[in-house]
Write a protein that binds this DNA or RNA. Structure first.
Lengths: 161, 161
DNA sequence: GTCTCAATGGGCCAAAAACCCACGAAAAAA
DNA sequence: TTTTTTCGTGGGTTTTTGGCCCATTGAGAC
Protein backbone atom coordinates (compact mmCIF):
# COMPACT_ATOMS: atom_id res chain seq x y z
CA UNK A 1 0.00 0.00 0.00
CA UNK A 2 1.62 3.24 -1.14
CA UNK A 3 0.15 5.58 1.46
CA UNK A 4 1.38 3.65 4.45
CA UNK A 5 5.01 4.09 3.45
CA UNK A 6 7.09 6.94 4.76
CA UNK A 7 6.17 10.27 3.25
CA UNK A 8 8.55 11.90 0.85
CA UNK A 9 9.01 15.47 2.05
CA UNK A 10 11.53 18.22 1.64
CA UNK A 11 12.71 20.76 -0.89
CA UNK A 12 16.21 20.67 -2.34
CA UNK A 13 18.19 22.53 -4.99
CA UNK A 14 20.34 20.48 -7.35
CA UNK A 15 22.41 21.28 -10.39
CA UNK A 16 22.00 19.28 -13.53
CA UNK A 17 25.10 17.72 -15.02
CA UNK A 18 26.11 18.60 -18.56
CA UNK A 19 24.82 15.15 -19.54
CA UNK A 20 21.43 15.70 -17.89
CA UNK A 21 22.40 13.65 -14.88
CA UNK A 22 21.00 14.42 -11.46
CA UNK A 23 21.91 13.18 -7.99
CA UNK A 24 18.91 12.67 -5.74
CA UNK A 25 19.16 13.88 -2.13
CA UNK A 26 19.73 10.99 0.23
CA UNK A 27 16.74 12.11 2.32
CA UNK A 28 14.49 11.36 -0.63
CA UNK A 29 16.40 8.53 -2.24
CA UNK A 30 16.14 5.96 0.52
CA UNK A 31 12.39 6.23 1.14
CA UNK A 32 11.69 6.55 -2.57
CA UNK A 33 13.36 3.31 -3.44
CA UNK A 34 11.95 1.43 -0.49
CA UNK A 35 12.68 -2.20 -1.12
CA UNK A 36 12.64 -2.32 -4.89
CA UNK A 37 15.23 -0.52 -6.94
CA UNK A 38 13.32 0.39 -10.08
CA UNK A 39 12.22 3.95 -10.76
CA UNK A 40 9.55 5.43 -13.04
CA UNK A 41 9.79 8.94 -14.47
CA UNK A 42 6.60 10.61 -15.64
CA UNK A 43 5.64 13.87 -17.33
CA UNK A 44 3.52 16.03 -15.08
CA UNK A 45 3.31 19.42 -16.78
CA UNK A 46 5.51 22.03 -18.37
CA UNK A 47 8.47 22.50 -16.07
CA UNK A 48 7.72 19.44 -13.94
CA UNK A 49 8.60 15.76 -14.03
CA UNK A 50 7.89 13.22 -11.32
CA UNK A 51 9.74 10.17 -10.04
CA UNK A 52 7.94 7.16 -8.63
CA UNK A 53 9.05 3.95 -7.08
CA UNK A 54 7.89 1.12 -9.33
CA UNK A 55 6.13 -0.40 -6.33
CA UNK A 56 3.91 2.68 -6.04
CA UNK A 57 3.47 3.21 -9.75
CA UNK A 58 2.45 -0.28 -10.72
CA UNK A 59 -0.85 -0.41 -8.79
CA UNK A 60 -1.73 2.94 -10.28
CA UNK A 61 -1.22 1.58 -13.77
CA UNK A 62 -3.12 -1.57 -12.99
CA UNK A 63 -6.06 0.42 -11.67
CA UNK A 64 -6.08 2.64 -14.74
CA UNK A 65 -5.98 -0.36 -17.00
CA UNK A 66 -8.83 -2.01 -15.14
CA UNK A 67 -11.00 1.03 -15.63
CA UNK A 68 -10.14 1.22 -19.29
CA UNK A 69 -10.89 -2.45 -19.74
CA UNK A 70 -14.23 -2.28 -18.02
CA UNK A 71 -15.18 0.72 -20.10
CA UNK A 72 -14.17 -1.06 -23.24
CA UNK A 73 -16.28 -4.07 -22.42
CA UNK A 74 -19.39 -2.01 -23.01
CA UNK A 75 -18.08 -0.26 -26.12
CA UNK A 76 -17.82 -1.13 -29.76
CA UNK A 77 -14.83 -2.77 -31.29
CA UNK A 78 -13.72 0.23 -33.34
CA UNK A 79 -14.02 2.49 -30.31
CA UNK A 80 -12.06 -0.04 -28.37
CA UNK A 81 -9.27 0.02 -30.83
CA UNK A 82 -9.18 3.77 -30.93
CA UNK A 83 -9.04 4.04 -27.15
CA UNK A 84 -6.41 1.39 -26.95
CA UNK A 85 -4.38 3.42 -29.37
CA UNK A 86 -4.76 6.52 -27.18
CA UNK A 87 -3.84 4.59 -24.10
CA UNK A 88 -0.84 3.03 -25.73
CA UNK A 89 0.37 6.41 -26.87
CA UNK A 90 0.13 7.78 -23.36
CA UNK A 91 1.79 4.80 -21.80
CA UNK A 92 4.63 5.06 -24.26
CA UNK A 93 5.36 8.74 -24.02
CA UNK A 94 4.28 10.01 -20.61
CA UNK A 95 6.13 7.56 -18.45
CA UNK A 96 9.21 5.44 -18.54
CA UNK A 97 11.18 3.25 -16.21
CA UNK A 98 14.71 4.45 -15.79
CA UNK A 99 17.77 2.88 -14.23
CA UNK A 100 19.44 4.37 -11.21
CA UNK A 101 23.20 4.61 -11.24
CA UNK A 102 25.46 4.52 -8.24
CA UNK A 103 25.16 7.21 -5.57
CA UNK A 104 21.52 7.69 -6.48
CA UNK A 105 22.22 9.30 -9.82
CA UNK A 106 19.79 9.21 -12.72
CA UNK A 107 19.74 10.44 -16.30
CA UNK A 108 16.75 12.44 -17.50
CA UNK A 109 15.84 10.66 -20.75
CA UNK A 110 15.72 12.41 -24.08
CA UNK A 111 12.00 12.89 -24.50
CA UNK A 112 11.62 14.33 -21.01
CA UNK A 113 14.16 17.11 -21.16
CA UNK A 114 12.20 19.61 -23.20
CA UNK A 115 9.19 19.44 -20.86
CA UNK A 116 11.38 20.13 -17.87
CA UNK A 117 12.92 23.04 -19.71
CA UNK A 118 16.29 23.08 -17.98
CA UNK A 119 19.46 23.36 -19.99
CA UNK A 120 22.46 21.19 -19.13
CA UNK A 121 24.29 22.64 -16.16
CA UNK A 122 21.12 24.37 -14.99
CA UNK A 123 19.44 24.05 -11.61
CA UNK A 124 16.51 21.88 -10.64
CA UNK A 125 14.29 22.04 -7.57
CA UNK A 126 13.77 18.57 -6.14
CA UNK A 127 10.53 18.41 -4.15
CA UNK A 128 9.14 15.59 -2.04
CA UNK A 129 5.43 15.29 -2.90
CA UNK A 130 4.48 12.72 -0.26
CA UNK A 131 3.93 9.84 -2.68
CA UNK A 132 6.55 10.75 -5.27
CA UNK A 133 9.47 13.05 -5.97
CA UNK A 134 9.01 15.97 -8.34
CA UNK A 135 11.64 17.71 -10.43
CA UNK A 136 10.84 21.35 -11.15
CA UNK A 137 12.32 24.04 -13.26
CA UNK A 138 12.98 26.79 -10.70
CA UNK A 139 10.79 29.40 -12.37
CA UNK A 140 7.92 26.95 -12.79
CA UNK A 141 8.26 25.97 -9.14
CA UNK A 142 8.05 29.55 -7.97
CA UNK A 143 4.98 30.07 -10.12
CA UNK A 144 3.34 26.93 -8.76
CA UNK A 145 3.94 27.99 -5.17
CA UNK A 146 2.63 31.48 -5.84
CA UNK A 147 -0.61 30.02 -7.19
CA UNK A 148 -1.15 27.24 -4.65
CA UNK A 149 0.08 28.91 -1.49
CA UNK A 150 -2.74 31.33 -0.68
CA UNK A 151 -5.33 28.59 -0.28
CA UNK A 152 -2.99 26.17 1.41
CA UNK A 153 -3.59 27.11 5.02
CA UNK A 154 -7.30 26.86 4.46
CA UNK A 155 -6.97 23.44 2.89
CA UNK A 156 -4.87 22.20 5.78
CA UNK A 157 -7.35 23.57 8.29
CA UNK A 158 -10.19 21.91 6.45
CA UNK A 159 -8.41 18.59 6.49
CA UNK A 160 -7.20 18.65 10.09
CA UNK A 161 -10.30 20.11 11.72
CA UNK B 1 -0.68 12.11 23.54
CA UNK B 2 0.89 15.48 22.77
CA UNK B 3 -1.44 17.70 24.77
CA UNK B 4 -0.89 15.89 28.02
CA UNK B 5 2.83 16.59 27.93
CA UNK B 6 4.40 19.46 29.78
CA UNK B 7 3.72 22.87 28.29
CA UNK B 8 6.55 24.65 26.55
CA UNK B 9 6.96 28.07 28.14
CA UNK B 10 9.59 30.74 28.41
CA UNK B 11 11.47 33.30 26.36
CA UNK B 12 15.18 33.03 25.69
CA UNK B 13 17.77 34.91 23.67
CA UNK B 14 20.21 32.86 21.65
CA UNK B 15 22.93 33.70 19.17
CA UNK B 16 23.10 31.99 15.83
CA UNK B 17 26.64 30.99 14.97
CA UNK B 18 28.24 31.37 11.58
CA UNK B 19 27.09 27.92 10.54
CA UNK B 20 23.45 28.69 11.36
CA UNK B 21 23.61 26.50 14.42
CA UNK B 22 21.37 27.16 17.38
CA UNK B 23 21.35 25.63 20.84
CA UNK B 24 17.94 25.14 22.36
CA UNK B 25 17.53 26.06 26.03
CA UNK B 26 17.44 22.96 28.21
CA UNK B 27 14.17 24.13 29.72
CA UNK B 28 12.55 23.79 26.31
CA UNK B 29 14.59 20.93 24.92
CA UNK B 30 13.53 18.19 27.29
CA UNK B 31 9.78 18.75 27.11
CA UNK B 32 9.95 19.39 23.38
CA UNK B 33 11.61 16.12 22.58
CA UNK B 34 9.53 13.99 24.88
CA UNK B 35 10.43 10.44 24.02
CA UNK B 36 11.39 10.69 20.35
CA UNK B 37 14.45 12.55 19.14
CA UNK B 38 13.34 13.89 15.77
CA UNK B 39 12.21 17.46 15.22
CA UNK B 40 10.08 19.16 12.58
CA UNK B 41 10.83 22.73 11.59
CA UNK B 42 8.03 24.72 9.95
CA UNK B 43 7.71 28.14 8.33
CA UNK B 44 5.26 30.29 10.21
CA UNK B 45 5.64 33.80 8.82
CA UNK B 46 8.32 36.32 7.97
CA UNK B 47 10.69 36.39 10.90
CA UNK B 48 9.29 33.28 12.57
CA UNK B 49 9.94 29.55 12.38
CA UNK B 50 8.47 26.90 14.66
CA UNK B 51 9.84 23.64 16.01
CA UNK B 52 7.69 20.62 16.78
CA UNK B 53 8.45 17.24 18.19
CA UNK B 54 7.90 14.67 15.48
CA UNK B 55 5.70 12.81 17.94
CA UNK B 56 3.37 15.81 18.09
CA UNK B 57 3.54 16.57 14.40
CA UNK B 58 3.02 13.12 12.99
CA UNK B 59 -0.54 12.62 14.24
CA UNK B 60 -1.53 15.88 12.56
CA UNK B 61 -0.12 14.66 9.28
CA UNK B 62 -1.71 11.27 9.64
CA UNK B 63 -5.05 12.89 10.37
CA UNK B 64 -4.81 15.04 7.26
CA UNK B 65 -3.90 12.08 5.10
CA UNK B 66 -6.60 9.92 6.61
CA UNK B 67 -9.17 12.53 5.70
CA UNK B 68 -7.90 12.59 2.16
CA UNK B 69 -8.07 8.84 1.94
CA UNK B 70 -11.58 8.58 3.31
CA UNK B 71 -12.85 11.43 1.17
CA UNK B 72 -11.50 9.92 -1.98
CA UNK B 73 -12.26 6.32 -1.30
CA UNK B 74 -15.08 6.42 -3.82
CA UNK B 75 -12.76 7.77 -6.52
CA UNK B 76 -9.98 6.26 -8.50
CA UNK B 77 -6.64 5.39 -7.05
CA UNK B 78 -5.17 7.80 -9.53
CA UNK B 79 -7.11 10.71 -8.05
CA UNK B 80 -6.19 9.71 -4.56
CA UNK B 81 -2.52 9.72 -5.37
CA UNK B 82 -2.90 13.03 -7.16
CA UNK B 83 -4.41 14.68 -4.09
CA UNK B 84 -1.69 13.31 -1.86
CA UNK B 85 0.83 14.58 -4.34
CA UNK B 86 -0.64 18.10 -4.33
CA UNK B 87 -0.77 18.23 -0.56
CA UNK B 88 2.65 16.74 -0.06
CA UNK B 89 4.19 19.17 -2.48
CA UNK B 90 2.91 22.09 -0.47
CA UNK B 91 3.86 20.49 2.82
CA UNK B 92 7.41 20.22 1.56
CA UNK B 93 7.63 23.94 1.15
CA UNK B 94 6.50 24.70 4.67
CA UNK B 95 8.12 22.08 6.85
CA UNK B 96 10.96 19.66 7.18
CA UNK B 97 12.22 17.12 9.66
CA UNK B 98 15.66 17.95 10.97
CA UNK B 99 18.12 16.05 13.10
CA UNK B 100 19.19 17.24 16.50
CA UNK B 101 22.86 17.23 17.33
CA UNK B 102 24.42 16.82 20.73
CA UNK B 103 23.83 19.44 23.46
CA UNK B 104 20.40 20.09 21.90
CA UNK B 105 21.82 21.95 18.96
CA UNK B 106 20.17 22.16 15.53
CA UNK B 107 21.03 23.60 12.14
CA UNK B 108 18.51 25.83 10.41
CA UNK B 109 18.24 24.35 6.90
CA UNK B 110 18.93 26.27 3.75
CA UNK B 111 15.41 27.09 2.62
CA UNK B 112 14.37 28.34 6.06
CA UNK B 113 17.04 30.94 6.68
CA UNK B 114 15.70 33.67 4.48
CA UNK B 115 12.27 33.58 6.10
CA UNK B 116 13.77 33.91 9.56
CA UNK B 117 15.84 36.81 8.32
CA UNK B 118 18.74 36.46 10.71
CA UNK B 119 22.28 36.62 9.41
CA UNK B 120 24.94 34.26 10.78
CA UNK B 121 26.14 35.52 14.12
CA UNK B 122 22.85 37.30 14.73
CA UNK B 123 20.48 36.82 17.61
CA UNK B 124 17.29 34.79 17.79
CA UNK B 125 14.50 34.88 20.33
CA UNK B 126 13.47 31.38 21.33
CA UNK B 127 9.90 31.32 22.60
CA UNK B 128 7.94 28.50 24.14
CA UNK B 129 4.48 28.53 22.58
CA UNK B 130 2.91 25.86 24.75
CA UNK B 131 2.64 23.19 22.05
CA UNK B 132 5.79 24.09 20.09
CA UNK B 133 8.89 26.24 20.18
CA UNK B 134 9.12 29.34 18.02
CA UNK B 135 12.24 31.00 16.68
CA UNK B 136 11.85 34.73 16.11
CA UNK B 137 13.90 37.42 14.56
CA UNK B 138 14.19 39.95 17.42
CA UNK B 139 12.54 42.81 15.54
CA UNK B 140 9.68 40.61 14.37
CA UNK B 141 9.22 39.37 17.92
CA UNK B 142 8.99 42.88 19.29
CA UNK B 143 6.44 43.75 16.65
CA UNK B 144 4.44 40.66 17.43
CA UNK B 145 4.37 41.46 21.13
CA UNK B 146 3.36 45.05 20.45
CA UNK B 147 0.39 43.84 18.45
CA UNK B 148 -0.68 40.97 20.67
CA UNK B 149 -0.13 42.57 24.06
CA UNK B 150 -3.16 44.89 24.30
CA UNK B 151 -5.64 42.05 23.87
CA UNK B 152 -3.76 39.66 26.10
CA UNK B 153 -5.69 40.26 29.30
CA UNK B 154 -8.97 39.89 27.49
CA UNK B 155 -7.95 36.61 25.88
CA UNK B 156 -6.81 35.19 29.19
CA UNK B 157 -10.12 36.14 30.75
CA UNK B 158 -11.96 34.50 27.89
CA UNK B 159 -10.03 31.30 28.31
CA UNK B 160 -10.27 31.07 32.08
CA UNK B 161 -13.89 32.08 32.51
C1' DG C 1 38.36 -2.37 -41.34
C1' DT C 2 39.40 1.66 -39.04
C1' DC C 3 38.61 6.02 -37.35
C1' DT C 4 35.70 9.23 -34.92
C1' DC C 5 32.22 10.71 -32.03
C1' DA C 6 29.15 10.20 -28.37
C1' DA C 7 27.03 8.13 -24.49
C1' DT C 8 27.59 5.74 -20.12
C1' DG C 9 29.56 4.53 -16.01
C1' DG C 10 33.01 5.15 -12.60
C1' DG C 11 36.39 7.64 -9.89
C1' DC C 12 38.09 11.67 -7.58
C1' DC C 13 38.08 16.08 -5.19
C1' DA C 14 36.54 19.76 -2.59
C1' DA C 15 32.99 21.74 0.07
C1' DA C 16 29.85 21.11 3.44
C1' DA C 17 27.67 18.69 7.04
C1' DA C 18 27.78 15.97 11.23
C1' DC C 19 30.41 14.76 15.28
C1' DC C 20 33.13 15.58 19.10
C1' DC C 21 35.68 18.06 22.45
C1' DA C 22 37.07 21.80 25.21
C1' DC C 23 36.81 26.31 27.23
C1' DG C 24 34.42 29.92 29.59
C1' DA C 25 30.71 31.86 31.85
C1' DA C 26 26.89 31.74 34.68
C1' DA C 27 24.20 29.76 38.06
C1' DA C 28 23.63 26.98 42.00
C1' DA C 29 25.15 25.07 46.15
C1' DA C 30 27.94 25.07 50.18
C1' DT D 1 32.04 34.41 49.30
C1' DT D 2 33.95 30.48 47.39
C1' DT D 3 33.51 26.25 45.08
C1' DT D 4 31.31 23.19 42.00
C1' DT D 5 28.49 21.89 38.36
C1' DT D 6 25.84 22.74 34.48
C1' DC D 7 25.22 24.75 30.18
C1' DG D 8 26.01 27.76 26.01
C1' DT D 9 29.37 28.73 22.46
C1' DG D 10 33.33 28.16 19.55
C1' DG D 11 36.43 25.35 17.04
C1' DG D 12 38.71 21.35 15.14
C1' DT D 13 38.24 16.82 12.92
C1' DT D 14 36.12 13.31 10.31
C1' DT D 15 32.80 11.57 7.24
C1' DT D 16 29.56 12.24 3.80
C1' DT D 17 28.22 13.96 -0.72
C1' DG D 18 27.40 16.95 -4.58
C1' DG D 19 29.74 18.21 -8.73
C1' DC D 20 33.30 17.67 -12.05
C1' DC D 21 36.32 15.03 -14.93
C1' DC D 22 38.13 11.16 -17.17
C1' DA D 23 38.21 6.55 -19.10
C1' DT D 24 36.07 2.90 -21.45
C1' DT D 25 32.75 1.09 -24.53
C1' DG D 26 29.64 0.91 -28.29
C1' DA D 27 27.83 2.56 -32.50
C1' DG D 28 28.06 4.82 -36.89
C1' DA D 29 30.36 6.64 -40.88
C1' DC D 30 33.88 6.87 -44.23
Amino acid sequence: MPGSAELLLGEFLRTLDDRFRLTLPTELLDPLLGDGSRLVIAKERTGCLSLWSAATWQPRMDAALDVIRSKLEAGLLDQRLGQMQDLGRLLSTRQRTIPLAGRGRLVIPDGFRSLLGVEPGGEVVVVGAAVCVELWQPAAWDACIAVEMPGFRQRIDELTS
